[in-house]
Simulated assay, not measured.
Amino acid sequence: MTGATGAVGRHVARMLPADAEVRLLVRDVAKARRAGLRGEPVPGDYQDRPGLDRALRGADAVLVVTANPLRPADDENILAAARAGGVRRAVKLSWLGVADPAEDGLIARWNRDAEARLRASGLDWTVLRMRTPMSNTLAWAPSIRAEGVVRALGGSARSACVDPRDVAAVAVRALTAPGHAGRTYALTGPAPISVREQVRELSGVLRRPIGFEELTADQALARWRERLPEPLAQALLEAAVRRAGGASARTEGDVEAVTGRAPEAFASWAADHEPDFR
Rank of each mutant, 00 (worst) to 15 (best):
A235W: 09
A171P: 13
R34T: 13
R200G: 01
A169E: 14
A30M: 00
L37E: 08
A222R: 15
G44S: 09
E256F: 06
S121Q: 10
I144K: 10
A7Y: 01
V98F: 01
L153C: 08
L106E: 08
T259C: 10
L93I: 15
R119V: 10
H180E: 01
M1W: 06
R119L: 13
F212P: 12
D74C: 05
G122I: 09
I210E: 02
E76W: 02
V172T: 08
T176E: 01
R243F: 02
V12P: 03
V62M: 07
T66K: 08
G204Y: 03
M15Y: 01
S156T: 15
T2G: 09
A168E: 08
S135Y: 03
N136A: 11
S94D: 04
L228A: 12
S143W: 01
L25E: 04
A55R: 10
V87Y: 04
P133W: 07
G122L: 09
E197C: 01
R54N: 08
L228P: 05
G39E: 06
G105L: 04
A257Y: 03
G211H: 06
A235E: 11
L128R: 13
L37M: 11
G189H: 04
S248G: 12
P133D: 00
E214Y: 02
T66R: 07
Q47M: 03
E213Q: 14
D75L: 03
R227L: 10
A84G: 13
T188Q: 03
P101Y: 03
G246T: 11
N68G: 04
R71T: 12
I107Q: 14
A108H: 12
A7S: 15
D75C: 11
R208A: 04
E238Q: 15
R49C: 00
A174P: 08
G154C: 09
P231A: 10
L221E: 15
E252R: 13
